Amino acid sequence: MKHLLATAGIVALTACSQQGEVYRSYFSEAGSLVDGGNFGNANMNNQLVMTGERGYVHDLSNRFSDEVLSTVNFAFNSAQLDETARDTLRTQATWIRQFPEVRFKVYGHTDAVGSEGYNKRLGLRRAQAVVAYLSTQGISRSRLEALVSFGETQPLIVTQGRERRNRRTVTEVSGFIKSHPMVMDGKYAEVVYREYIESAKPASDLIIVKEGSASESN
């Protein structure tokens, strides 16, 4: 009997607790019970989608990867840039300078030879080498948003041996500089399609007058 009374009491307390939550929710701010602390992240995501920023970042990322070789490769156990890598980075820098409103990330990778910890550090050194070289080409380090190392965790070629194609860095568009006037005005499309807009302008505003045309008009 005592056991039944105790069980009934627990059930009653649970019901009261649930009713109390419902009661408090009636007088509380909407969503206060369902917000688990992640509402801000979802709200930011919605903001990016509504303003179109996320889509424009994606479009600009596609342009960069289509128009520029975004990857450079390294010798085994090395973070030194060879002449081929420097040539690729000079091309990247030329493209990046056209878009002063845009931020970039450089991701470092290695092959699977060696320990995971060592390879993560090696991937970071490779990313740092790329950032250092881009900075010599007139790119502000503040625009290279982060140095990230995936080490050996994202191989292009799945193998436990040495593989040059896995020893690489990848440069990617990561977002926009919020303080830039065009970005503050929400002119993302003008940034993404700037080159196309410029190419639509006439090569010159000068009017070409053929010899003898003046006399012919008299």
Rank of each mutant, 00 (worst) to 15 (best):
L4K: 13
A79K: 05
E211L: 05
N41L: 09
I207M: 11
Q80G: 09
G52M: 04
A85D: 07
E216W: 00
A189C: 02
G36W: 01
V173Y: 01
H180W: 02
L81S: 06
N41W: 02
S65R: 10
P100A: 05
H109V: 05
S149H: 07
T110N: 06
E190H: 11
R63D: 14
N77E: 15
I139C: 01
R168P: 08
V158W: 04
G175C: 03
S149K: 01
E216P: 05
G20A: 00
S28H: 07
G161H: 06
A15L: 11
T51Y: 04
G114T: 00
L144S: 00
E152N: 13
T88M: 01
T110E: 08
T169H: 03
Y188R: 01
V72W: 04
M44R: 13
F176A: 02
T171H: 02
E145N: 10
R86D: 11
R97Q: 13
G20V: 06
L4R: 10
I96N: 05
N73T: 15
A200N: 08
Q80S: 15
V131H: 04
N62G: 12
L33S: 12
M44N: 15
R164L: 10
L122K: 02
S199A: 14
T14D: 07
V49A: 11
R164I: 11
E190M: 11
N38P: 00
R164H: 10
V68C: 10
H109K: 05
N41A: 14
M1W: 06
Q80D: 15
F150I: 06
R143P: 08
S142E: 13
M50I: 12
D82G: 06
E211G: 03
G138R: 06
H180F: 09
R194H: 12
S65Q: 14
F76T: 12
S65I: 03
E211F: 04
N119R: 13
S179C: 00
G55R: 06
G186C: 01
Y23L: 04
K120T: 12
S32K: 04
K105W: 05
G123D: 03
S142C: 04
E53T: 07
L33C: 10
S215E: 15
K201A: 10
F39R: 13
Q160I: 01
E67C: 07
V113H: 08
E116W: 07
S78M: 00
A42M: 11
S65P: 00
K105V: 13
Q128N: 14
L69M: 08
V34Y: 09
I157E: 13
T94L: 10
T51F: 07
I208G: 10
Q19G: 00
S25Y: 06
K2A: 15
V148M: 09
F99L: 12
E172V: 14
R54D: 14
Y196K: 13
T84R: 10
Q160D: 15
Y188D: 09
A30N: 14
V102S: 09
V106E: 06
A79L: 03
G212H: 08
F39K: 11
V131P: 01
V57G: 05
K120E: 15
I10Y: 03
T153K: 08
E211H: 07
S115E: 14
R194W: 09
R63P: 07
E29L: 08
T84G: 14
T171R: 02
F27Q: 07
F64Y: 15
D82K: 02
N218W: 03
R168V: 05
M1L: 00
V183M: 08
Y188W: 00
Y56L: 07
L33Y: 09
Q154Y: 11
V148F: 01
L144P: 04
V130Q: 02
L134G: 00
